[in-house]
Amino acid sequence: MSFQHPAHTAPRNGDQRRFQRRVVGLLGSIIAVFSLAAAPQAAAQPLVPGSSDLFANAREAAWNTRVNVHRQVDATMNPIAAQGIKSAVDNVINVIFPGLIEQKNAAIRAEQQRIAEEAAREAERLRRSNFDYGSCPKHARACIDLAKQRTWLQKDGVVQGGAVPMSSGAPGWETPKGTHRVLRKVRHEVSYIFDNAPMPYSIYFTTTGVAFHEGDVNLWSHGCIHLNHQDAVTFWNNLHIGDVVYVY
């Protein structure tokens, strides 16, 4: 005894004929709309008042009919047959209204992109509104939270990119608290006090040689702020001479 999955069962003859009549009717509607829209152009007559509206309405009607045909064949036919019908409809539309389908699809993609970007902005707004700024003042460009071993950049009091991990000075070499300013930047720096240890992307903010720089965030420093590589690059690119650095 053989068994055929319902999803692949061919429609009964009566159902198939009724569906074919619906598709033929829809295609007939398309052709009728196209004929009305194309008639002024075929006759090479100047557009009369209202004819541009007629053409625009015909385009919309063609697009709506196309959408309905696609939906119906996707819902009632197997994928191969459905694709054949959809391609036929699209070919007709592309002949009469060149670029219509791509224009509509582009508009749909743009709207989807707009919605996604709006959702992302709202999510970022909520994330920033819930951010723990501690005692860092709004005018500071960089903030350093020694207790939580985190640091971040901000602009006009709004965090940029979120807090990133860091390590600060070890006991006896504590990073000085308070308000400081960026004094100088040295891209390929080394520590002349500690055996020429590399200090890439150094951003000095005290007169005693304390700086942000790339380093192991799992190890205490001699007062500097160690940052992971990408964070060090980000701070280097965004902090400038005179910017306020607040340590608390």
Rank of each mutant, 00 (worst) to 15 (best):
G28W: 05
G242M: 00
D74Y: 02
H188K: 10
V244M: 01
D132G: 12
V190T: 07
S35N: 07
I193N: 03
I85V: 15
R22K: 13
W152P: 07
A75L: 08
G178M: 06
V164Q: 01
K177N: 09
S135D: 15
S191P: 09
H226L: 08
Q20N: 13
V186H: 02
N13P: 06
L100F: 01
P171F: 00
A56R: 12
A107E: 15
L27T: 10
L54Y: 01
I225N: 09
F3I: 15
I31P: 12
A116V: 12
A39M: 12
D156Q: 07
R187S: 01
D132I: 13
V48L: 04
I225E: 07
M166V: 15
S2N: 15
F235A: 07
N94I: 08
G134P: 03
M77Q: 05
D231E: 10
I85H: 00
P200H: 07
T234A: 00
R141F: 02
L47P: 10
A81I: 09
L36F: 13
Q41G: 14
A81Q: 10
F131S: 14
K86D: 08
A62T: 15
D231Q: 04
L26D: 05
A106Y: 09
A62P: 02
G209W: 04
R17C: 08
I108K: 14
A42E: 05
Y192K: 08
A123P: 13
A43V: 12
A32P: 05
A58L: 00
K185L: 02
K155V: 08
N94R: 14
L54Q: 11
